[in-house]
Design a protein around this nucleic acid. Sequence first.
DNA 1: GCAAAAGTGTTAGATCTACACCCATGA
DNA 2: TCATGGGTGTAGATCTAACACTTTTGC
Lengths: 238, 238
Amino acid sequence: MSERGEERRSPTHVTLAAVLQVREARLCVLLWERGREPFSGAWSLPGGYLEPALALDDSIRSQLARKVDVAELSWLEQLETVGDPDRHPAEWQLATAYLGLVPLGLDPELPPDTSWHPVERRPAEMAFDHRAIVRDARERLRAKLSYTNIAFALAPESFAISELAAIYTAALGYPVDPTNLRRVLERRGVLEPTGERRTSGPGGGRPAAVYRFGSRELEVTDPFAVLRPPAGSGRAAG
Amino acid sequence: MSERGEERRSPTHVTLAAVLQVREARLCVLLWERGREPFSGAWSLPGGYLEPALALDDSIRSQLARKVDVAELSWLEQLETVGDPDRHPAEWQLATAYLGLVPLGLDPELPPDTSWHPVERRPAEMAFDHRAIVRDARERLRAKLSYTNIAFALAPESFAISELAAIYTAALGYPVDPTNLRRVLERRGVLEPTGERRTSGPGGGRPAAVYRFGSRELEVTDPFAVLRPPAGSGRAAG
DNA sequence: GCAAAAGTGTTAGATCTACACCCATGA
DNA sequence: TCATGGGTGTAGATCTAACACTTTTGC
């Protein structure tokens, strides 16, 4: 890391976010229609230039605030940084992409150039390399759903198990059985009964118990599927 | 992503790498002793300024080439990008960190300011935020050892199962039983017998069969520990 | 023969999916 | 009482860690 006091050409740096939400049983991503070149008219991820004195996550929060109420963001984590020299036609630009999540049921106000798109039917042509970023965000979410409690960020404050299973189904892309989902999450100790019950619908049916997530911090609930440490070995931190 | 043709202050951008290797039964990281301010004399990760027209991974490869023969790098993947405004005392600087792996047994020539340090006993004071990056690299490696075939990048071309178990033990930080490791990897189909056998040591002992990894591409061998898709459902790509 | 190291067999436990069955409610 | 949806029980399959046991070698 040799450095000189002189001028040095530096890339511009933007932060982007793939904000995902389950809407009408489909995993959707928040996209914005560009109004100017390059890629004018193309769908792109919300974001913008990194400002001095802002941390990366503060930057993306601030950029997102122009499109959506960031108080409704239940999760934000860094995804990847892309920097192919030709990813921007006119300038040398890097982009650090984030994965954001919004709980089911919220419907934030959006500016007219911004809307939700099902991830599976997202536009084939997206600005820059944003299509690949959406794919990576979806993959990251799917992986974490399987070994963490991150569903707390997709689910509303409280929910019936069948509603939670529908969220998993939408996000994972294949059916998730509520019966077994309950058992998995109960064994892991992440579910907490609220004591309330849903009222049955018009067709009748047994009322569903209402649950919430016991913690809204990310927890790795299934740390070592294989090659787990021997019985009584607490791994040293460091 | 509003942009203007005018000048814009941009952060400098460096690429760094936490290069890990198992040496003498310990997971080690390649560190470099800084020769100038800031953090002169402190241990730091190898890396340097991103050059225009270089992709991020090309940049870190090129920077690493100054310290170590990059042909001996068996794996390189992006880890994270850090950009706290005060991470560099003098300039506005972002850093994209990579995880690199070198197989057991290679001992690349190093310049005098560069050396291997056991990850568990790495210097308490490291330059910038490099200590946290080493920790994150180790965690990433540990996680991937459990659900992918990434051990191919830590192991030599061919090996006995007991040698491979020693590599897992060093990298994971807890004992891994060769007997069960063999079964896990054989079921996953990642091991390939070479047909050769090790000669016994001086004390005797049955000669070990020699294996290699069938693929040297990263493969997720244990994709869904839980919540797996129903029996005959191929997930759609996208 | 004996020690040492590698490899095999086996057992007990955990956890998962699938599905049958029972429960609580509205009409 | 019947349809509907929620909840429980259970069986079968898979996979795992642990460990006893057998095999193959050097001395």
